[in-house]
């Protein structure tokens, strides 16, 4: 269990590094999706990974939680070497990493309450109904949707589903949040509300977040720092304004929308 030891990167005064990815490679058959991608994530920071559809952004964060197996390189998340983890250790890690899916992925055979109780019951093994209620209501309050608690997922709009999806991950009090295309398929107003929520989550839960997106307005709104993922390679790290100032050929079409 040496993986449980905190990262050795801790330096006095400097922000703590919670994720460190070095030379990550991933192929599907002969197709190279990620080619030597490296990036770091620090505490309480929103990192936006910007890239076009099919540039392997989703693959990157799926590799981080062990949904996909990397073909090379190392992924260190909160001190865990992800590719080497046992099933048990992986579950421990996943408790601390929240994952918001592109399609929000609510369990459509359950009510919202059951959706939110599900990870509590099955992972934290909490069965006390009072504790469950309290936690569920708190999470729903944080995303502003307390009144939906006994509804079914198919009664909700896309934006509401996104919020519930985020609430379901927040209920486990994660240290890191991973957002996969949080604003895709939403109108600009709703998208902006989601962006606000992302910022609010960072402030109330003190999470470090990686936000995967191709939406430049989202990137501008939520990012502390940005990485561009182009043709499977990570390049051009910096703040939003720095990246815009670079005038890079590959990034032009993002900024000139």
């Amino acid at each position: 269990m040496n993986n449980l030891a905190p990262s050795s990167e801790v330096l006095a005064g400097a922000p703590t590094k919670v994720v460190e990815i070095i030379d990550l490679e991933k192929r599907f058959g002969d197709r190279v999706i990620l080619n030597r991608v490296s990036l770091d994530l620090y505490e309480k920071e929103n990192l936006v990974v910007l890239g076009r559809s099919g540039s392997g952004k989703s693959v990157l964060i799926k590799c981080m939680v062990g949904l996909l197996k990397a073909d090379g390189g190392s992924i260190n998340v909160l001190g865990y070497q992800v590719p080497l983890l046992s099933v048990h250790e992986l579950n421990e890690l996943r408790l601390q990493v929240g994952f918001s899916f592109q399609g929000s992925a609510l369990y459509d055979s359950m009510t919202i309450r059951q959706n939110l109780e599900f990870p509590l019951k099955r992972n934290l093994r909490i069965f006390d109904q009072e504790v469950l209620n309290e936690k569920v209501m708190q999470a729903l309050k944080d995303v502003g949707l307390e009144n939906t608690v006994d509804m079914n997922p198919d009664e909700l709009s896309g934006g509401m589903k996104k919020r519930i999806g985020i609430a379901r991950t927040l209920i486990l009090k994660p240290k890191i949040m991973l957002y996969d295309e949080p604003t895709s398929g939403l109108d600009p107003v709703t998208a902006s509300e989601i962006n606000e929520l992302i910022l609010q989550v960072r402030d109330t839960y003190h999470t470090a977040s990686i936000i995967i997106t191709h939406d430049i307005s989202c990137a501008r709104q939520v990012s502390d720092r940005m990485v561009a993922l182009i043709r499977g390679e990570s390049k051009l790290q910096g703040t939003f304004d720095e990246l815009r100032g670079r005038n890079d050929e590959d990034l032009k079409h993002f900024f000139n929308y």
Binding site: F99, F101, G103, D108, P119
Partner: peptide
């Protein structure tokens, strides 16, 4: 359909086996 809508992945990443 749970697989297609990433519900299974969602369960997986919340450690709910």
């Amino acid at each position: 359909s749970m697989q297609v809508t990433e519900q299974i992945d969602a369960m997986e990443v919340s450690g709910t086996r």
